[in-house]
Nucleic acid binder design. Structure first.
Lengths: 197, 197
DNA sequence: TATCAATACGAACGATCGTACGTAGACTAC
DNA sequence: GTAGTCTACGTACGATCGTTCGTATTGATA
């Protein structure tokens, strides 16, 4: 059920996700869905949580198979790109689709989106920090924050351009940009193998 | 009239922009607006064109006051950031708001959005090329394309995070990231003054 | 077995959506 | 002066929106 919701939301946005359309897509009745989630906001919140779970499973947990530090950071970026490129959600990156939808509209849904994004951004920053602590990246605190800003920026740009142009090329540009940023931060070239193609 | 439309679209998205709401916001009647633009698609197309005009005036034309080359490229990025930071549209960057709205929905509106985005991305790439031709950046063709990908990536990430967190900090991160990318491409530090703060 | 909570359903509500019509006024062209 | 074009308006239509009822079915608990 929530699988349909997250997939629909990735295309239509979080408030383009209507109960009626979700009913048609999932084969259930409208009132059934409305009752299950209480109201539309409830559905939106559940959808955000479900999307976050998928993201965690497909991106974060897979990266955790690598050791903390540069290896995990690189794996994280690799799985991140693959998650968008393979269209785990048919509208591309789930969070890119819903963040731009609610970033200007205060309320509980925006709060949930913000919380999920914060969790993700903080996680990236933490992984950068681990790589710095392990001596695999040569950055001060400010430089680490900068890298933790740049990497998702490259990814989200790739996601956006790929959707707009139905092309894989942006992902290659993002991966190469990530390699450059990591190399500039002192990463060993051998550690970046997953991002080369 | 179209001022209301672009501003509304920057917040609600391009299909969250309803004729009824636009009627209320602009003080005109619903049927008046529907007649003027023929139908909703016409309104959306006109809104895209109007948003593009504002963007051209506020960002591109101001950067054209600088000489072709690195100076203009830096000015372009500076005015780009200022355009988002000062909320020329109350929903932040107009194109960021509408691109994520239609990137998965084929049709004339998507085509118009894509055309506008292509125009913009090509323009950035051209300015990078001018700076390379002038010997102010040391890049091959592939490196130039890479830089033309990275600069808007940093900008759009700043726009998104600023909207989500109501903070100016992301713009500083983007500006610094731009400086680093330009410096890595061989830009003279003195030319980046506009991007330092 | 009887009870209770949860789930799914059809039906209907007020509101808003996009659209289509007819009309009234303003302006230009002849 | 008259005809024609354009803009703005009110009204109404069918469709869809989110939401709320009452009800039937299910499954676990007492």
């Amino acid at each position: 059920m929530l699988t349909f919701a997250t997939d629909l939301a990735s295309v239509e946005g979080l408030d383009g996700l209507s109960i009626g359309r979700l009913a048609d897509a999932s084969g259930h009745s409208k009132s059934s869905i409305a009752g299950l989630f209480q109201n539309k906001v409830g559905l939106q919140l559940a959808t955000v949580a479900a999307g976050r779970d998928v993201f965690m499973r497909v991106v974060v947990e897979r990266a955790r198979e690598q050791e903390r530090g540069l290896d995990r950071l690189v794996a994280l970026m690799h799985h991140l790109i693959e998650y968008s490129r393979t269209r785990v959600f048919s509208g591309g990156c789930f969070f890119a689709a819903i963040a731009s939808d609610f970033d200007s509209k205060p309320g509980p849904v925006r709060d949930a989106v913000r919380e999920a994004m914060t969790l993700w951004y903080d996680y990236v920053e933490m992984q950068v920090g681990y790589a710095v602590d392990a001596g695999e990246l040569d950055l001060d605190a400010s430089g680490a924050a900068q890298l933790a800003f740049t990497l998702p920026a490259l990814y989200e740009q790739a996601n956006a351009r790929s959707l707009l142009y139905s092309s894989d090329e942006p992902y290659r540009l993002a991966a190469r940009g990530m390699c450059e940023a990591l190399t500039a931060a002192g990463a060993a070239p051998a550690a970046l193998e997953l991002l080369r193609r």
